[in-house]
């Protein structure tokens, strides 16, 4: 497994634990309403589990398992891959911060821009690896 995939997958695990931790609190509050104000965490729960866990995990596995180039850099430019990881997680921090400070619009936009840039790097890396060795 390449280093960038390890970074992506392990940070996805961290977001999974955070997301499910918040989800646990929210579900317990449905049973025994102990702190109704915690429902402001709902968008963070969703962001953590969809963007932080699912998408990032899938990116990590795709970067690892898609067919490799036979010659040269087998998974493409590593600097682009590292940039993809950094941009994605900076985007996560911006988005989570935006949700925490009641949907601060400029941070939300920054987070989405960072995620879009990261996904662009992902597409750049993966596009030519969507291929077959049997030609």
């Amino acid at each position: 497994m390449p280093t960038v995939s390890i970074y992506l997958i392990r940070s996805a695990f961290i977001y999974l634990i955070l997301g499910i931790g918040i989800g646990t609190l929210l579900l317990i509050d449905k049973g025994f309403s102990f702190a109704p104000q915690i429902w402001f965490l709902l968008p963070i729960h969703i962001e953590l589990l969809l963007s932080g866990w699912l998408l990032q995990f899938l990116m990590g596995v795709a970067y690892w398992m898609f067919p490799k180039f036979i010659t040269g850099k087998t998974r493409g430019n590593k600097n682009v891959a590292v940039t993809m990881f950094i941009l994605y997680n900076l985007g996560m921090i911006a988005l989570l911060s935006a949700h925490l400070v009641t949907e601060l619009n400029s941070l939300l936009i920054l987070g989405r821009v960072l995620h879009f840039s990261s996904i662009s790097c992902f597409v750049f890396l993966i596009w030519s690896r969507i291929t077959t060795y049997n030609r």
């Binding site: 497994m1 390890i6 997958i9 695990f13 999974l16 646990t24 579900l27 049973g31 025994f32």
Partner: peptide, 28 residues
């Protein structure tokens, strides 16, 4: 209400165990 809380805790434990098992397996 108690069953909802049990359901939440069961899912949390399941995920914590999964991450604990898979964390060291995300490696070269």
């Amino acid at each position: 209400d108690i069953l909802i809380v049990i359901s939440a805790i069961l899912q949390l434990i399941a995920v914590l165990i999964f991450v604990a098992v898979m964390w060291p397996r995300a490696r070269p």
